[in-house]
Design a protein around this nucleic acid. Sequence first.
DNA 1: ACTTTTTTATTGTGATATGGAAATTATGTC
DNA 2: GACATAATTTCCATATCACAATAAAAAAGT
Lengths: 256, 256
Amino acid sequence: MNTSDKLLATLALFTTEEPEWTVEDAASRLDLSVSTTYRYFRSLNDAGLIVAPATGRYVLGPAIVQLDRQVRLRDPLIKAARPIMRELAERCAVPAMFLLCRLYRNQVMCVHQEQGGTLLDSDVAYERGRLLTLHRGAASKIILAGLPARFVRGYQGRNREDMAAVGFGPDWEEVKRSLRQLRSAGISVTYGELDPGMLGIAAPLFDPAGNVMGSLGKVVEDNAETTQALPQLKDDIREAAERITRAIATWQAPQP
Amino acid sequence: MNTSDKLLATLALFTTEEPEWTVEDAASRLDLSVSTTYRYFRSLNDAGLIVAPATGRYVLGPAIVQLDRQVRLRDPLIKAARPIMRELAERCAVPAMFLLCRLYRNQVMCVHQEQGGTLLDSDVAYERGRLLTLHRGAASKIILAGLPARFVRGYQGRNREDMAAVGFGPDWEEVKRSLRQLRSAGISVTYGELDPGMLGIAAPLFDPAGNVMGSLGKVVEDNAETTQALPQLKDDIREAAERITRAIATWQAPQP
DNA sequence: ACTTTTTTATTGTGATATGGAAATTATGTC
DNA sequence: GACATAATTTCCATATCACAATAAAAAAGT
């Protein structure tokens, strides 16, 4: 672990659970000397990545907000998906939240949301920037189904009960069958796994090499109307996901 | 400039104007060797701060989105302002966009927005994460008015024409008078300086030490209705800004 | 004005960052 | 599928600079 990694480990201390750090606490957590930690904090502070709203107490700073705007405007996946998602949102019969998720560190992160129809008052579990497991929720499950079998096998070993609880079955054979079913259907539908009373639908997104890299999802209220429209909703999502996959197939060439 | 600073300078290469970098380009821009740049890119990549959607071409990564969520949820200024802004947005007669801005590197950055009434179809120049000058727009001007005279004097020297164009007057004497007027009024009102046809209103926010640290702003359509309601709108913003300033006066003590 | 805390500067030493080249791996092409 | 090219990592000798402990300064609190 070199200086760069230690500096970034310092930045990584700042989490939702522990958003605020003093130099002393950071030093003892990372097993660094206080003077070294001061040096790191100063560098991060100069870069605007952290700031001290009160003396000695540091939190993430404005540079984060600035960088995030860049991601919203320039990230290739978001750029490819946004117009298609907006189109979905505009010609959307029932109130819905559209989600763009991506695989990140064996978890799933929502990176873009698009609101369709009248606003849902309650927020959706797939909140932008939040990390969720690979096995709960439609947008996660359809990604898991696309990952290599050897990876999923190990994953299943570590999450046996949780996976059984969301319908993957009790053992590897059963899980394998569930995943194969999801993969061949090309779509996942879940009922209230993350948000009670909500219905999730998601289709996979593939990178140019053909690996799953994320998913396009939709969350609607689980009621008679949506149940009746389900086949149509599934087709819409699947078709839109395929369009996004085609759009990102051109990533090898320089972006316009 | 030490290793940490060079690493962060590498991260800082990724801007809205140049969102995508190769190792070679970064190396030549920063005057580093290619192998060192590879090392930096690897560290940033391992931290999730950058990713390569296509081989050799790096862009900002998911860690940024994750960190930004933390800011939205945990930043003390946003935490203090959000409930008050939401309240404003909810009991808001005319369609409006409320802005929370903060001083950052001699510029102004919007860090939170709150929508009031029916949606404005056009976006507002004060977009979250975007840096704007200190002299254009109500939310900026009211901050500039609170900064130390010696700073503003130098600033005016470097931005003479621009400041004259937005009503600060042609020379330092006149500018000083305009700023004094803003400061004593405790509010700034501008007409279409950033968004044509829009009216901006903003009041300053002070840190516990009594220095301006940002502003609370509101953008509405500039029409007969809003012109008529202007005194009320100004009072609302001023009063809400004072409430936020009081809320952040308690920052010395640990957050709950 | 005083005490306490936070932050920066100093310094000699030893760890390690550095850059060039080679080796390896991935990618694209025919 | 073999070849060519590009991307990335590894290796290594050298000098640099990061490190930690202390001191000094600055800032904050009382």
